[in-house]
């Protein structure tokens, strides 16, 4: 049952950026997860106080092990502990994986456009990994908007996949600071730039957009206005505010 709390053991903890960390969890009896699902994590203090938060899973189909990437939120209650204090060998409780909507299945036939804002890359990365591990030949394209190269998750893996995978195209878009030698200056993401760097509407892609609320709202509006059918767009948002910068 996915709704029961289960014990997970921390098997790895690797920094992604200065403020984030990828945490590997082993859960006895876990039978993999769908790409795009999330888990709930429950932390319990020594006096019994508990706090629960949801985190997207970054991996897919790894049997008893899954990975999440946690970005530390200023004033966060749970994320600072997960990023800074949790250690390999520690145990915590998880519920899930859950979710049957914002998911990609290896049997899905359509090309896929992924649009990530910042740490919104996490569930989309699980789709990329599931797609790469599958025989599914459909084209994937990722537009990854981030503030600077240093804030990027899965940098080497995305660089390598972008170079080598015959079925994945990766486009990075930097809004505050670009890597050395980048052909353009950092700037706000505009509708024109977004639309020029995604699969065209007539390719009929399935579209997954994940990021902060304002990022998702704005990108979605642009795509709907450009003629992408609303029924083809699936979104996942987090945070109360935040814009496209």
């Amino acid at each position: 049952m996915s709704t029961l709390w289960r014990v997970a053991e921390v098997v790895s903890g690797v920094p992604e950026t200065e403020s984030s960390r990828t945490i590997g969890l082993r859960v006895d009896g876990l039978n993999g997860n769908l790409a795009g699902q999330h888990i709930d994590i429950r932390l319990t203090a020594d006096d019994g106080y508990t706090a629960v938060r949801s985190y997207s899973v970054a991996t897919a189909g790894m049997d008893e092990i899954l990975e999440i990437t946690v970005d530390e939120l200023a004033n966060g209650e749970v994320s600072p502990y997960l990023v800074r204090d949790l250690m390999v060998g520690d145990q915590l409780e998880i519920r899930g994986p859950v979710g049957g909507w914002f998911v990609w299945r290896p049997t899905d036939p359509n090309p896929v456009q992924l649009i990530a804002g910042g740490s919104g890359i996490v569930p989309l990365m699980s789709m990329i990994r599931a797609h790469e591990a599958s025989e599914n030949p459909s084209q994937f394209r990722l537009l990854y908007s981030l503030k600077s190269p240093e804030t990027g998750f899965y940098r080497e893996e995305l660089l390598t996949l972008g170079q080598e995978s015959p079925k994945l195209t990766v486009d990075h878009f930097y809004t505050r600071k670009v890597p050395a030698g980048w052909p353009s200056a950092p700037k706000r993401l505009t509708a024109e730039t977004l639309l020029a760097n995604i699969l065209p509407a007539d390719a009929a892609p399935d579209i997954f957009i994940c990021g902060q609320t304002m990022f998702v709202e704005t990108a979605t509006e642009w795509m709907v206005q450009a003629g992408y059918p609303t029924g083809s767009i699936k979104t996942e948002r987090f945070g109360g505010t935040g814009g496209i910068r």
């Binding site: 932390l43 020594d46 019994g48 106080y49 508990t50 145990q91």
Partner: peptide, 22 residues
């Protein structure tokens, strides 16, 4: 009670009786 995370203290924002569990 579940697994204890020593060093986790939390912000105690759920002590309010108006808040459902979790």
């Amino acid at each position: 009670m579940g697994i204890i995370s020593s060093g986790f203290h939390g912000k105690r924002r759920t002590g309010n009786p108006a808040l459902p569990p979790g």
